[in-house]
Design a protein around this nucleic acid. Structure first.
Lengths: 277, 277
DNA sequence: TTGAGGGTAGAATATCTATTCCATTTATTG
DNA sequence: CAATAAATGGAATAGATATTCTACCCTCAA
């Protein structure tokens, strides 16, 4: 056995199989071909299933795994599964790099390293954003904002910067905006004038700010159309919302850059303005 | 009870879980949250593994699958696996739609095009940031913040979101922060207590907000150490500053995403906290 | 306090899993 | 052709799996 390495990438495995292909015996070659053609089946199936689909007995599958250099089918399957995980997580490389830099705690503590850490975090957040937001939601949100007379903004705690930014842009565009900041007393009173002719944009991430969780249902109950920007479908501002933008993989507050929601709200505002012409 | 068919998409399942979340009991809610946050773990893990990672007994996992409407864990797992398969083999339709929106991004008025425009704008802003900020400035700024008793934040108008975000993070880290927002009257009075033992972080971009331009020189004259974040060495908050971060190529307000300054201030705050240990 | 109902956790279980083993077949070599 | 080695397929097995079952524990109401 040449390389029975424990940690092997899928691409490396493909290379290894291709290289050993000629040296394998008939049955094992047949399995090699099937395996390269149906990697997903290997990743998710059992030995019996793979055996049946490739037309060989189960024991041959195990022998094949041994021939490639693995301890057994299960071990080989891990490599095929890693391919699936990598495919669904675009920030996989970035995360790996980040974990590496975390290990180097000496370098990781220098301000310059911290900055580049946040930059790469933000980069992957943007990639995730553009992949997870769909046209349907954008169109629906734009329509709501266009029809609205006044636009109410609800974003407290860590989300407050996003709300203030959206307020700034909307006001620049000439829209009437009510920023619910709770200054000077009850935040309820600030929102008392909201009607179904208006619209609400709510922004909230874990841990969800209590006042946000309390106020949102009230406004929804008064039939104010609501656009929610949050990190989970279980957040308190999802139930009753007309449109929900779910921004996944928001890290814990200390590492949260707000880059993704900032981009999103600005795109909403500008997109609405362009569509209005 | 609703009846999720055998052929259920992952998105539909997410919706179903979110909908039933409220009606579930404590343990089951806990599982719902874990499952939505770690879909890959559910797709590839065994009942025992999922149970351990989510901190519940295995039987609870099975009860959860039943509660959602599946015959058992295995059945539910199929849906999570379909997500992995879909991720690795994107449908031609989705690819086509994405390429179309990318083509039109220059002229595009559709909300989706606007979003991708802002995302790419933000991406390049981040690249520029990491290239233009140097270690020397970061170290100097970190030293100032560490020594400071109180930290005054000055960012008005379009820069206000950056200031509020920095205020939030610094307060989370236990630092004393004064956010100069001008609420309730003169912004001068809010800053009156600042001394050379404190520090000032000023953020301002074109067009420079008048109050910022007026207040900054006053504080500098009182020997308050100042860190400036701006877009030009000709801006009114450069003269007298101890450290200047120049973020170039900031587009006009309508296209300004604030992504770069948001990342920078957060890296400053966290970098200071890490260096303090 | 007492009683009832749903919720829960952990042990018990029947099923399925990957793997090994060995008799048989197939290929290779002198 | 004979002799030997390699490869194969299927049965046997030990271990892990999802699921079920039951005693216990809360919560709440009378």
């Amino acid at each position: 056995m040449n390389k029975p390495s424990g940690a092997m990438s899928y691409d490396e495995l493909r290379g290894a199989i291709a290289q050993k292909h000629r040296a394998l015996s008939g049955r094992l070659q047949q399995i090699a071909e099937f395996v390269l053609d149906h990697p997903t089946d290997v990743a998710l199936g059992t030995v019996a299933e793979v055996a049946e689909r490739s037309g060989v007995p189960p024991s041959a599958i195990v022998r094949f795994a041994h021939a490639i250099g693995f301890g057994g089918f299960t071990e080989m399957q891990q490599v095929f599964r890693s391919r699936l995980v990598a495919g669904v997580a675009p920030s996989y490389k970035a995360r790996l790099a980040r974990m590496k830099s975390e290990e180097k705690s000496v370098l990781g503590r220098k301000p310059a390293a911290v900055l580049s850490r946040f930059v790469s975090e933000a980069q992957s957040a943007l990639v995730t954003l553009s992949q997870s937001v769909h046209t349907r939601e954008l169109d629906a949100a734009t329509a709501i904002l266009m029809k609205a007379r006044d636009i109410y903004l609800l974003g407290l705690g860590g989300s407050f910067p996003v709300a203030t930014h959206l307020a700034y842009v909307l006001r620049k565009l000439g829209r009437r905006v009510v920023l619910l900041d709770g200054i000077g007393g009850s935040i309820h009173e600030q929102s008392h004038a909201a009607t179904p002719e208006d619209a609400l944009v709510a922004i909230s991430f874990r841990n969800y700010y209590p006042d946000t969780a309390r106020l949102f249902p009230e406004l929804v109950a008064r039939r104010v159309p609501a656009i929610s920007i949050t990190d989970s479908l279980l957040s308190p501002i999802v139930q009753g919302a007309s449109v929900v933008f779910e921004i996944q993989d928001m890290p814990e507050p200390a590492l949260r850059t707000l880059v993704a929601p900032m981009c999103l709200v600005q795109a909403l505002a500008i997109g609405m303005d362009l569509a209005a012409d």
